[in-house]
Amino acid sequence: MEPKLPAFIVPGRVAALVGRLPQLPPALALAGALNLALGRVLPREQLEPLAGKRLLVRVTDAGLALRFALGANGFRPVFDRQPDDLRISATLRDFLALALREEDADTLFFGRRLLMEGDTELGLLVKNTLDAVDWAALRPALPRVGLRPG
């Protein structure tokens, strides 16, 4: 079965515009979504190696670069000058396909659509922890905020 999500890229003009906007609101939104999941569906204990690390999520076609870190109170956007520990880059479409479990991360990596730079161990932790979330079993327990795929 081909993935249901159609191939698309964010038009260059939109990306150029987004790239010039402050990156705080989208970073806040992503951190907020992750925090909703943290403890509920994402096992905090397993993600502990991420504590204090700088993660950069780059949505290449949308001109977005979201930088955040995991602290005692959950994920928060960071704008300091420390080097990134892990950088993950892909298009918006491919990030969505990963979140919806329509694409496998290695498939995207082999096809050069996903780039993971920096601490590979952290990257594997993030990927495998997300893959292990059993949405089907959690469905009844989840708040209705549209966090879940499928």
Binding site: M1, L98, R101, E102, E103, D104, A105, D106, T107, K127, D131
Partner: peptide, 13 residues
């Protein structure tokens, strides 16, 4: 075994 549920579903089908 290192791959995501997406791959497992695609290949198994």
């Amino acid at each position: 075994r290192q791959r995501s549920p997406a791959y497992v579903g695609q290949v198994t089908r």
